[in-house]
Amino acid sequence: MGAKVVTITSGKGGVGKTTTVANLGVALARLGQRVVLIDADIGLRNLDIVMGLENRIVYDLVDVVEGRCKIRQAMIKHKLFPELYLIPSAQTRDKTAVSPTDMIQLTDKLRPEFDFILIDSPAGIERGFRNAVAPSDEVLIVTNPEVSAVRDADRIIGLLEADNKGPAQLILNRAKIDLIRKGEMLSAEDVTDILAIRLIGIVPEDEHVIPSSNNGVPVTLNENSRAGMAFRNIARRLMGENVPFMPMEDDNNILRRIARLLSGG
């Protein structure tokens, strides 16, 4: 048994994978879970910055895989949560420094001591993606409500299905409620219509996100942020809780909302 390994991936770059990993990590830690975050985007180190832990890096993922240090030595403890750790990626190497087998072995060693292992996948469908997905028990696909991001997510879902990984779940990030209401942006329904996988969360566009990332304080620590709230809800859903979608978080179809109220969901 032990930890559940959850890989966060997208296909397309820049849709918010790293932000999602950081926020889910913090949200799960706040709920008392023991969490390790692994940045599998080797060569483009980001997660440590968003987590505000950049200046504490001594060893990285490649050091662990190549045996230059023990796993514990590469695990950076978070400033606020003693049960939240980060294994940073290497800045100077590329994806071929790590193999899917290495990732499986690494997570197998971590599993007994944690509740969740979140893996931040690089964009693309090549080796880095394969590394990130290899050890996963669950896959979360992050997409934005735009056609190109949804197209890439569809490709990723196809690859996961061929690998018997799945069913993946979907996070719709950066949804602009007012644009969706005017029919100028894809709604959650439009997106799930194409992708045909379960939606685990909708994160609204929120001006708090970018400054939070820049300051290394994930937005979910900000009680006033709607995006932060959405990430906290996703974390609870990951733990198996049945959390209703926030009002306006879902699409704006009044009939569906009434139906949901009646069904008690």
């Binding site: 197209r151 890439d152 569809d154 490709r155 879902i157 196809g158 690859l159 299905e161 045909a196």
Partner: peptide, 8 residues
């Protein structure tokens, strides 16, 4: 007997 996704 399955959905053909992008790239296939």
């Amino acid at each position: 007997r399955r959905t053909l996704r992008s790239g296939r």
